[in-house]
Simulated scan of single mutants.
Amino acid sequence: MSRAPITKAGSERLRIELERLKSVERPRIIAAVAEARAHGDLKENAEYHAAREQHGFNEGRIAELEAGLSTAEVIDVTRLNAGTKVVFGATVDLEDEDTGAAVTYQIVGDLEADIKQRLIAVSSPIARALIGKSEGDSFEFTAPNGVKHYEITGVRYE
């Protein structure tokens, strides 16, 4: 089994989330299930079914985090010395060659990816297109809404 890469910061964030799910969310959900169960007939008890569903999602996320973190290879991005070359962990500044819009992404492990925080999975199409390129290079990749053209305007490891 290969070990999936994860950044040190991502590992710490996910461990905090795991601890919160186990110590805060799990007891809260268990109490909600018990309270809903006390209301009587479980067949038509929407509160009970919602609490059980919430319990399932929480336990699923706990299992996902535990499994992912147990097999992850933690990489301290600040210790990488790749210069201006894009490798795992790089924070990359891009300029859309078609619109001129600027965007910044960090290439992270699949488990820690979160597009809202501009953390893209190393397995994503844009990350695969970026790996091995250097600052100043132009590249293209196929996005869901068509082919995109970008120039790499900055690469850093922080």
Rank of each mutant, 00 (worst) to 15 (best):
L80S: 02
K22R: 14
A67L: 15
A67K: 15
L21V: 06
E35Y: 03
A67V: 12
F88E: 12
R79M: 07
T71N: 07
S124I: 04
E73A: 12
A67M: 12
R79A: 12
A82N: 12
E25F: 09
T91I: 10
G100R: 00
N145A: 13
R37I: 06
L94P: 09
I29K: 09
A51D: 01
I75R: 13
A50Y: 00
I131F: 01
T78H: 07
E66P: 14
G10W: 07
A31D: 15
D137Q: 06
V147S: 07
R13I: 04
D110V: 06
S70I: 06
A72C: 07
A67R: 15
T7M: 02
K148T: 08
A9W: 11
R52Q: 12
I75P: 10
G89R: 04
E12F: 08
D76T: 02
G109K: 01
H149F: 08
P27M: 05
A32N: 10
R118Y: 09
L14M: 13
I16G: 04
I6F: 05
D114T: 05
D137I: 03
T142K: 14
D114F: 08
R156T: 05
R26G: 13
T71E: 13
A129Y: 07
H39V: 08
I152W: 05
S70V: 04
S134H: 12
E53K: 11
S11H: 14
V74D: 05
A46L: 11
R3T: 09
R79P: 00
R20S: 08
A90Y: 00
A4P: 15
A102Q: 11
A127R: 01
H55M: 15
E66R: 13
E73I: 06
I115W: 03
R3V: 03
I75G: 09
N58F: 03
A38P: 02
H149I: 02
G132F: 00
S138M: 04
L14I: 07
E25Y: 11
K116A: 13
S11P: 08
I120L: 09
E17C: 08
E95D: 03
R28N: 15
R13T: 05
Y48F: 14
A32K: 11
A82L: 08
E53R: 09
